[in-house]
Structures are given as C-alpha cells and as structure tokens.
C-alpha cells in the first residue's frame, strides 16, 4: 500500500474535455454486439500499440501488417469472449497480438535462428517523432523508466521474451544463466514492473 504514494507522480495526464479518452471496455462491449462504428474507435485506440508490438517482435513491416490485420479481425470476431473478470480490455487485445506475433516469429525461426543482440533492447521505433501525443509519450516513458528500474537480468529476461519472442530456454542460452534463474527473473521482473507502473 505504501507504494501508492510513489505512483502518484506518474499518473497520466487526464484527457481534455474536447477530446475525451474513449473507454476501451464500453467500446469492446459494443463491438461484441456487432457495432462497427465502435470497432472503428477501438481500432484507433489500440492499433498503434498492436501494430508497434507485432512489428517489434517480427521486425518485418510487411509481415507485421499482415499479422496485425489478423489480430484486429480476431478482436472483432471474438469480442464476446472478453471476460472483464480476468483483466482489462486493452490487455486482452495486446495478449492476442503478442501471442500471434510470437507464434509467427517461432514458425519463421524454423531453419535459421535470428541473430540477436542480447540486451540491446531499445524501445525506439523509426516513427518516434510522429508519436507526439502527450498521453502516449507519457505511457511509453513510463514503461521505459520502469524497465530501467529492474535489475539488468530481470530487464533482459523480460525484454528478450516479450519484445523478441524468445522462449525461456532460449533466453537462458542467450544470457548464459540457468533455466531456473530465468524463470524466476521473469516472474519477479514482472512483479517489479507491475509495482512501478500506474494502472492503465
């Protein structure tokens, strides 16, 4: 509970009255009822992160676009399955996106293992300068500073898995640390990240 005070200064800037932040939960509910207009608004809300995440994992923009389209259509198709008891609507969307990206990158990985620069997990994208929306900048900055808050091993274990799609045995080999350590660092790294991040 003591952490709450520490979190306060990281709270996102509230949406301005003329541009109210759409609520992903009610949008997703409307989408589940077949509301295409709501889907359009949900699209605008989540797609920069869906596409960015997939592109980050896959590296290849053309493939990323293809997988992003599959994911967004899947969100439309299965919106009724979203269970608010188990998490937030945006987490539900990004979980689908991440899973698809990882599945794709692993099937691509079959023959030639991709070369990886362990630890070189930059958070930049080529479109940085375009992302000038205050809220977005702030959220990204927050993830970045919270990642910096992790121990080196936690940060590498989390980012090699999440941003590059590696399995934990692959991470163990890349970092040359035992499997059990990798499992633990992934878990306690996420816990530390959770405690640092402001609720979405």
């Amino acid at each position: 509970m003591a952490e709450h005070g520490r979190r306060d200064h990281l709270r996102p800037v509230p949406a301005s009255p003329e541009n109210p932040e759409p609520d992903a939960g009610s949008l997703l509910k409307a989408v589940a009822r077949g509301d295409e207009k709501a889907f359009g608004r949900l699209y605008d809300l989540v797609t920069p992160r869906v596409y960015g995440l997939i592109r980050r994992v896959l590296r290849d923009p053309a493939q990323a676009e293809e997988v992003a389209q599959e994911v967004l259509v899947e969100v439309w198709r299965t919106a009724a399955r979203f269970d608010p008891e188990r998490g937030s609507p945006t987490a539900w969307v990004f979980t689908i996106a991440h899973r698809r990206a990882v599945d794709r990158v692993r099937s691509e990985q079959a023959a030639a293992d991709r070369t990886v620069r362990a630890g070189a997990a930059s958070v930049d994208t080529p479109y940085d300068e375009v992302a000038d929306e205050v809220a977005v900048r702030l959220e990204r900055q927050q993830v970045r500073s919270c990642l910096d808050d992790l121990t080196e091993l936690q940060r590498q274990a989390v980012t090699l898995a999440y941003y590059q799609g590696h399995t934990y045995p692959q991470v163990s080999r890349l970092l040359d640390v035992p499997l059990a350590t990798v499992k633990t660092r992934m878990r306690d790294g996420l816990i530390r990240l959770r405690d640092c991040l402001v609720p979405a």
């Binding site: 992160r49 596409y51 960015g52 992003a68 389209q69 990004f94 993830v143 941003y163 996420l190």
Partner: peptide, 27 residues
Amino acid sequence: RETAARLADGAWSVPPPGLRDNVLAAI
C-alpha cells in the same frame, strides 16, 4: 499478463496507411 501487456505501450508505432481500410473491409 496484465503487466506484460503494458509493455505494448513501449512499442507504439504508426500503423501503415492502408491497414484501417483493410481491417474494416475484413470485419
């Protein structure tokens, strides 16, 4: 998972221009 999904915030990127129309057509 909720926490891991927040890492998507760190991967923001401008979507390709044609994606929106393609997705809306597909749904």
